[in-house]
């Protein structure tokens, strides 16, 4: 039983890798579906923004409030903006954005493509002379790859604003001082790797959602399974990629 599960795992990993390979092959074939891409930008990028914004704001606020007592113990309360900004920018904002998007976008794509698959809409596209892989998968994967970094940057800004409010609940940090300290602390080594990794997060979320949706079977029940496993696998991948990103930036000496 265990070995069968393991074999399934290996099978699926290989399948996902081949799917990714196909993505890159189709990516460079002519006729890019611009209209569908813009439509997806709206649904994936714009529609996820409120959710990402609220989460980022709350995370910024909460992290700041939670960090204060420890810093106060050290008498280093004035370091609050510095500490909070580093943890938000380097880790929390990008990962929270990616996880929220894995939940919202990953399941959305998984369910959408899954239902298209079981209701033969994907076959219908194929018959209608439109490459469904290009029309559905390539556009969505590119959209997630491009939109999640954008959402992450906005989440960075919003979470820092949340941090500013959090720092002012018990203490007083002026607007200017807060931002001065934040930008004094942050270096390119904090910002650039954290932005770069969100591109990979976005790509992983898109490719897993599309893979799961595109390979749905077993009818309506399969749609639910596709949406669910898309969320589970892409969330897990976000963490794995995050681990890799930390190690790579460490090796490159950017930490």
């Amino acid at each position: 039983m265990a070995s069968e599960k393991f074999q399934n795992f290996i099978d699926e990993t290989g399948d996902i890798a081949r799917f990714t390979g196909r993505f890159f092959k189709e990516l460079f074939k002519p006729r890019f579906e611009f209209n569908e891409f813009f439509r997806q930008c709206f649904f994936i990028g714009y529609k996820s923004f409120p959710l990402v914004a609220i989460t980022a704001f709350i995370m910024g606020l909460v992290i700041t409030i939670q960090s204060r007592p420890t810093l106060v113990e050290f008498g280093a309360e004035s370091w609050l903006p510095r500490m909070v900004s580093v943890s938000l920018i380097r880790e929390i904002a990008p990962v929270i954005t990616a996880l929220i998007c894995a939940g919202k976008i990953g399941s959305g794509i998984g369910a959408e493509l899954g239902s298209m698959k079981v209701t033969e809409q994907i076959d219908a596209m194929e018959v209608s002379g439109t490459n469904p892989f290009k029309f559905l998968v390539v556009t969505r994967v590119i959209t997630t790859t491009l939109m999640i970094p954008i959402l992450a940057v906005l989440a960075d800004a919003i979470s820092l604003y949340g941090g500013f409010l959090g720092a002012n609940i018990h203490g007083v940090v002026s607007w200017d001082l807060f931002w001065n300290q934040v930008f004094d602390t942050l270096a390119f080594g904090d910002v650039v790797p954290s932005i770069i990794k969100t591109y990979f997060f976005g790509f992983a979320i898109g490719i897993i959602g599309c893979y799961k949706g595109f390979n749905t079977n077993k009818g309506t029940e399969g749609v639910g399974i596709a949406a669910n496993s898309a969320v589970v696998i892409s969330s897990l991948l976000v963490f794995i990629l995050d681990l890799l990103a930390v190690q790579i930036t460490d090796i490159l000496g950017l930490n």
Partner: peptide, 20 residues
Amino acid sequence: LDRIRVKVGFLFQSNALYDS
């Protein structure tokens, strides 16, 4: 195949109308 498919229509069992 695409050129043949223009001459061959296909009515799907589930209609396969694009929901969006």
